[in-house]
Write a protein that binds this DNA or RNA. Structure first.
Length: 266
DNA sequence: TACAATGTTTTAAG
DNA sequence: CCTTAAAACATTGT
């Protein structure tokens, strides 16, 4: 499920645990999602510490603890964070349960494509500091898109939008939404996009990120029905702009949805 | 049964 | 060394 906005939404689910002490840590017996430190080390570092703060950036999340521990979480395809009762009993797909006096913070991920990392250091981990600039920051510019256009000229623009080193947080539905809004066909070779197209792309990336974060990230709400997203999942969906049936095909390794005639191939 | 699912990494080819 | 495409990962639901 989680792209930029959903990740921010799930990050906030653990907010009730901020400022509270950790009494117990439960780790899935197979510890499949964990890299770096062993679960045993994570447990010994976090017990009796306090959850201090959290941030999300693209699809990455970082939780900071008073012990100088940093917990990084990526939700993969099916991960989610939730709150449950302090006596919660972990289920089959729960990978990490952080128990506090009044609640348990739960990480669930049935498909196990998520990843958890942990380290102890005075400042944020290097992988966090090296993340690409946010799509809402001034560092993400039309000029940077021109560099991308040259470098990945033969790939379909849909495939490039999914690259996390360039467009952190964009996933399958957001990429389709952005291209639909910009009337750009997802199969267009990136190198064929005009300067005008790149300005369009830049504007729509920011529009979709800003509004998805506001609607989903803040409140967990539903996007307006005049967005593509609410129509793209099922076969037979209708384009909110043209009323014509949407097309679906694998582009860039992922099922892609677009509106014929509305989005033209160059 | 077979395939697809809001993702990333590895592998291999060009 | 770089770009590009495909396979692999694990599980559930249609």
């Amino acid at each position: 499920m989680p792209e930029l906005a959903e990740v921010e939404y799930y990050r906030r689910q653990w907010d009730p645990g901020l400022g509270h002490k950790i009494l117990q840590i439960l780790v899935h017996p197979k510890a499949r999602l964990f890299t770096g430190l062993t679960p045993k080390q994570i447990v010994s570092e976090l017990i009796d510490s306090t959850l201090r703060s959290s941030e999300s950036h693209g699809k990455q999340m970082l939780f900071r603890f008073s012990s100088k521990g940093w917990l990084g979480i990526h939700l993969g395809m099916s991960g989610l964070l939730s709150i449950d009762a302090p006596d919660y009993i972990p289920q089959r797909h729960d990978h990490l349960v952080i128990v506090q006096k009044k609640r348990a913070l739960v990480l669930t991920d049935p498909r196990q494509f998520g990843r958890v990392r942990f380290e102890v250091s005075a400042s944020a981990p290097m992988w966090w500091q090296n993340l690409p600039p946010s799509l809402l920051s001034p560092l993400f510019s039309v000029e940077s898109l021109k560099v991308t256009r040259t470098r990945y000229r033969r790939s379909p623009i849909k495939a490039i939008l999914l690259r996390q080193d360039l467009f952190p947080g964009i996933g399958n539905w957001m990429a389709d939404e952005i291209l639909w809004r910009g009337r750009l066909h997802p199969a267009n070779a990136t190198g064929l996009l005009s300067d005008f197209d790149l300005e369009t792309l830049h504007r729509e990336i920011r529009y979709v990120c800003r509004h998805a974060l506001r609607i989903i990230g803040q409140k967990g709400g539903y996007l307006p029905d005049n967005w593509l997203t609410n129509h793209r999942w099922k076969e037979g969906g209708i384009c909110p702009q043209t009323g014509v049936e949407l097309k679906r095909k694998e582009i860039g390794g992922r099922t892609t949805c677009w509106s014929p005639a509305w989005q033209k191939l160059k």
